[in-house]
Design a protein around this nucleic acid. Structure first.
Lengths: 335, 335
DNA sequence: TTGAAAGCGATACCAA
DNA sequence: TTGGTATCGCTTTCAA
């Protein structure tokens, strides 16, 4: 392995000069810089990561705590993971993946050994044990999702309450008075994934204000659950005239198919709205008006927060992203 | 941060003794060991990762090169990733995820800086540039999939040719003479994912030997592709009496639904077989007889290979796993 | 069974 | 603009 010593020797300078040439932390004469660059190129030198970690203060590695549940949606999960990797790489960071029951203990391990400079946590719950953990470890961290006790830690999330409100208000504006909602598997609520409660609160508040009725169904992960949820809503005595989807893509696809099978035209007979979609609602069989989860921004923001907090978690703040509603013609006035 | 020095001081021993107590590389008296353990516990000591990497020869980090294509199946991809993480963690290794166009260049980066001890590569293609790369870098590596030029490198894969042969032979044994095959998106073939050619070769060889006809369709990722493929097969002048699925779960689900819609009973009217399934064919709407991809074993084997090769890539070998056929009643004799 | 000390390969301070 | 060198925290050889 080529070391900085050999480069220095080859370039006829001291190792500190090579180091500074590499980091750019002090000015180097043109001639010296060129000699160093040539030596580096010719020798094929790459600085040793371990030595850098030890001597420098940083590792240029970020940990991603990515818990996956049995009823979780793998494509959604994977998109978050790859977006975090992208954002990290754009900042010259590598990502260490903590998964498979190692999402919590792994944080302690990699942080206490100074393997990583920061931690990004996804799949955040209301009483997330990782909050206290990163606090006690004093490691820079950012949560994708807002836990109950978020004081002093960095979080980023879509404004789910506002997303729900916008969905309801959009439908109410078109005269809908009974609105169906198909939600994620109920396990999401049970394990207190934070966005669920905030979405539900937003729904209830907006519905109360507008004086409209909300009918709720939950689409489990099993095959046919989306269709069954749609049936349950539409078979009711007073069926909704609009449905808000707050569930994963497979359930939406099934529901759309069932709607079509029932001979209902969208939006003439039934309005559909995708809320906080982790997929592209514009590419469904029936493209849906709605709000898409800003994954890219969420992950970018989380990575930046996890890297910026060099002095610990104290200065961190919560960032709530405003939902953007895109109209695709799946919502219309009640006939 | 607590260092080994402080532990040594607190325990009243030298740092080398502490180090050896930690690594277990030389025997320590019971009394000394207890004093050290207590000091470690009381001080909350955890060895510094950077220092370990620098002084020791290893980093306890493994890189996972995980290319993802537009037509790739995210759940399958994710399962491979998590299985690699599991296998790595069981061996006290962490996984650094290389993705998002960094699957190749990332290998060079993490290997040349000695950030990782080994590399596991998935999504292997026939002429995979990562093969030459790991060879030139001299980094320990293991491929999940067998590239064209696999000499001297570690690979592990299911025996796709044998899987195809078993599928054909199973159907032929029940008298099927025209067999339909629904394959992965054709992009898999175009980019030369190695398992595709081997599967196709096995199919062709087995069909030729048995003197039966193979009719091929490819299910793209678009919605409805699985159903269309099934229709294309069943609408033919001489429709197959059996279908082998060598595609992802969504396509299989669609095809099954279409089969049902066409009023065909399985296996009375049509036999179905899942070959090299990345999902559980037993949990489909119509449970399928077939061969499941042994992901767990593949990933475990890859991780072990990537870790075992301490002296470079020279002693690596290819490991081909035998397919296991499980009968679930979806195949029967032609009427 | 234990200790002293020489590295490992960088970074960055202090001088020049 | 550049060089010398202490330092980071650990592993491992060599001695005792």
């Amino acid at each position: 392995m080529v070391t900085i010593n050999e480069v220095a020797k080859a370039a006829g300078v001291s190792i500190s000069t090579v180091s500074y040439a590499l980091s750019g932390k002090r000015s180097i004469s043109r001639a010296t810089r060129e000699r160093i660059d040539r030596a580096i190129r010719e020798l094929g030198y790459t600085p040793n990561a371990g030595a850098r970690m030890l001597a420098g203060a940083r590792t240029n590695i970020l940990a991603l705590s990515a818990p996956l549940h049995a009823d979780g949606h793998l494509p959604t999960h994977m998109r978050f993971v790859t977006e975090v990797v992208r954002a990290a790489r754009e900042r010259d960071y590598d990502v260490l993946l903590l998964a498979r029951d190692d999402e919590v203990t792994g944080i302690r391990r990699v942080a206490s050994t100074s393997l990583v400079d920061g931690v990004v946590a996804m799949g955040v719950t209301e009483r997330d044990e990782r909050v206290a953990l990163v606090r006690s470890l004093g490691v820079a961290a950012a949560f994708i999702g807002v836990p109950g006790d978020s004081g002093g830690i960095a979080c980023v999330d879509l404004d789910f309450a506002e997303a729900a409100r916008m969905a309801v208000e959009r439908l109410v504006a078109d005269g809908h008075r009974t609105i169906g909602v198909i939600g994620h598997p109920h396990g999401y609520v049970d394990r207190q994934q934070t966005f669920m409660a905030r979405f539900e609160d937003g729904l209830a508040a907006a519905a109360a204000e507008a004086g409209v009725r909300i009918v709720h169904e939950w689409a489990e992960v099993s095959r046919g659950a989306g269709a069954r949820a749609a049936d349950a809503l539409l078979d009711a005595a007073e069926p909704p005239t609009a449905i808000i989807f707050h569930c994963n893509e497979p359930a939406v696809e099934e529901a759309e198919r069932r709607v079509r099978e029932r001979g209902l035209a969208v939006p003439q007979d039934l309005s559909l709205f995708a809320a906080a979609a982790s997929y592209d609602p514009g590419r469904l069989e029936i493209p849906l008006s709605g709000i898409t989860l800003p994954m890219e921004e969420m992950c970018t923001s989380a990575v930046e927060a996890a890297l910026g907090l060099r002095d610990g978690v104290a200065q961190a703040t919560t960032r709530i992203l405003a939902p953007a509603l895109v109209d695709r013609g799946s919502v219309a006035a009640v006939v």
